[in-house]
């Protein structure tokens, strides 16, 4: 491409506003390197993405209500059944009775039922599977505290109700939970899916004031 320049006479090269072949190549090179870098980063991320999941991560069979009750009779009186040391399997009707009776359950609940779908509000469900890893900084939350009937994390004193709702302490939300499904009358936990705990301020059950009751964790 040539044109007349007022000073230089005939000149070769792209007209103003057009791109030279070399300029085009250079730009494409830049784009190519950019795309490659992004691919490299994304590939690295995908490569490092963990997919071998042992223990937590798969479908875990907990058992029937009857088998849990045989294993751990206190379950029918509202204490959480500790499954594979990582999960609280909460018998919701029994746990509510326990809180209302301040630790005493006159009518143990042997079979809470099969309402486990996550479409039902947590208070009305039969069974909840709470993840024992404290959403604050990850300590393992111990069994219900006798004085308060709350789950109280000893590390930094976060407190949760039997339904895993946040009540006090530095945690950012309630206890995380797993989806529970029924296979016949057997409870199965889908531990590959963790649901975030209910946000701070969620109160569906047990609205006692943290200041007014005794605690295990200060």
């Amino acid at each position: 491409m040539s044109m007349q320049h007022y000073g230089y006479g005939e000149v070769h090269g792209p007209r103003a506003g057009e791109m030279s072949r070399r300029g085009f190549m250079r730009r494409m090179l830049g784009v190519g390197v950019g795309i490659l870098s992004i691919e490299f980063l994304a590939g690295t991320l995908a490569f490092l993405w963990p997919n071998i999941r042992e223990g937590l991560g798969g479908r875990l069979t907990v058992g029937t209500a009857a088998s849990i009750a045989t294993n751990y009779p206190e379950w029918t009186e509202g204490l959480a059944y500790i499954f594979q040391s990582k999960i609280f399997v909460v018998n919701v009707p029994a746990a509510k009775a326990r809180v209302e009776g301040e630790g005493e359950v006159s009518q143990p609940v042997g079979d809470p039922g099969t309402d486990v779908s996550s479409d039902i509000p947590a208070v009305d469900r039969s069974v909840l599977a709470l993840y024992r890893k404290c959403p604050h900084l990850g300590c393992q939350v111990p069994q219900l505290c006798d004085q308060s009937q709350w789950f109280e994390c000893l590390c930094h004193g976060s407190k949760y109700t039997v339904l895993g709702e946040y009540r006090a302490g530095p945690a950012p939300r309630g206890m995380d939970r797993f989806v529970v499904e029924m296979e016949g009358d057997t409870y199965v936990i889908n531990s590959g899916e963790i649901e975030d705990g209910p946000p701070v301020g969620t109160v569906t059950f047990d609205d006692r004031d943290s200041q007014l009751i005794p605690h295990c964790a200060a």
Binding site: H136, C139, A171
Partner: peptide
């Protein structure tokens, strides 16, 4: 679980602030 779980010392300032402000 230990009775108090602490991060390494150079993160303890951050952990301390976590107890004052919104965690996020």
């Amino acid at each position: 679980t230990p009775h108090v779980a602490k991060a390494p010392w150079y993160f303890l300032g951050l952990q301390e602030m976590l107890s004052y402000f919104n965690a996020t």
